[in-house]
Design a binder for these strands. Sequence first.
DNA 1: CACGGGGGTTGATGCCCGTCAAGGCTGCAG
DNA 2: CTGCAGCCTTGACGGGCATCAACCCCCGTG
Lengths: 228, 228
Amino acid sequence: MQADTALTRELRHHYLFCSLTDAQLERLLASAALRRMAAGEHLFAHGDAATQFFLLRSGCVKLYRLSPEGNEKIMRLIRPSQTFAESILFMEAPSYPVSGEAVEPSQLVAFDRDTFLGILRESFATCQAVMAQMTVRIQAHWDEIETLALQNSRYRVVHYLLGLLPRNAQGRVAVTLPTRKMVIAAHVAVTPETLSRTLRGLSDEGLIEVSGDEVTITDVDRLRRRIH
Amino acid sequence: MQADTALTRELRHHYLFCSLTDAQLERLLASAALRRMAAGEHLFAHGDAATQFFLLRSGCVKLYRLSPEGNEKIMRLIRPSQTFAESILFMEAPSYPVSGEAVEPSQLVAFDRDTFLGILRESFATCQAVMAQMTVRIQAHWDEIETLALQNSRYRVVHYLLGLLPRNAQGRVAVTLPTRKMVIAAHVAVTPETLSRTLRGLSDEGLIEVSGDEVTITDVDRLRRRIH
DNA sequence: CACGGGGGTTGATGCCCGTCAAGGCTGCAG
DNA sequence: CTGCAGCCTTGACGGGCATCAACCCCCGTG
């Protein structure tokens, strides 16, 4: 890949790459590839042999699995400046554990597994960053497993809405849904119909107001308490 | 902790510790503590500040979360020679992300976080082992999230039973359930009643035979195919 | 022996949510 | 403009699973 000052600066501010020396970064970029994708375009499939992990620069990518009956569960929605599929780095026979597909036109960087592994060997700080990142993901998984196992669909929808807000939001707040409702539904593990009905129910109770992809939460604290 | 040749030999065969030098291992053990627990005894609670991670030597420990209504979801059942709670190593403000409790009388080793972090800094091989281990756990989480989101309780029970078998089991196989059925139920995220009924259903169909905590699978391949 | 408690099973009931089907809305192509 | 496709909504319906309750069995204790 051609050197690119904008990209270099971007990586320098990324927790995974900020500890690398100039030489290491150069080596990494030399083995990396830029990739542009159209909405709906396929990146990799669950089970594919893997030699790359990715950084999303713009757009949106979904990581998902399909049941035999064709139902889709979105495991993670990737946003710009997030990396994904790092876990293939340490597998013995690396293969993607989920499928990946662009939800919007997207631009991403594909990093070479072996090159990055070589750099890891030289940089404990980067090792730390990788391990910290994996820890964050593991925590998120515990949370998701808990809500799937112990909470109903209403809780999951409300939890998703609250997750869109800044941490210290209060009172009346408006958010715009980041993607189509179908995608959100597959993310919180309900059908589009149920999502629609749940939002309707919440708005009938006066907890939210919905207009297209604009959702206004009338009182954040009340919603948090009413989650049950 | 006092040096203990049996324990030292045990650690030498553990993937997490097998790459350490004698000096490192000694340092680690000096800061570690042995702990014995009775059945039902509490090890740590979700949210507790954390300075230790653990290796189970004997017995059985459950890692779980409780819903506000008091429902329990067991996230992981720890077996002898498994380590757990390593993820507290890389948190900024380390706190246990789940609760831990002995299910049987257990014996375990508590390792000191800071000491192990210091050793990690000196041993890339051990870093690799840690990262590989985290990767395995992440993969298991993907699988669990998928089955919770996309599969019904019958599938989860059958999947659990099949998971008790050796990888290449065939034909008629007997297994004994490793713990009380209540615990298994909380592990596969159903109520004890539903677990009981599901086993009943499977045995009415001739797929399994149940007698106390002995389950015989009449035909492993048929059960695998009949999962859905 | 009676007693009690915990684990497991079974039955009755209800509700959450998925499925199927129809209809509205919007944006795009002809 | 018309037609069409995709997304969203709404309604009717049914099944899976939780809940509540009763009962059995086993085992340790007084």
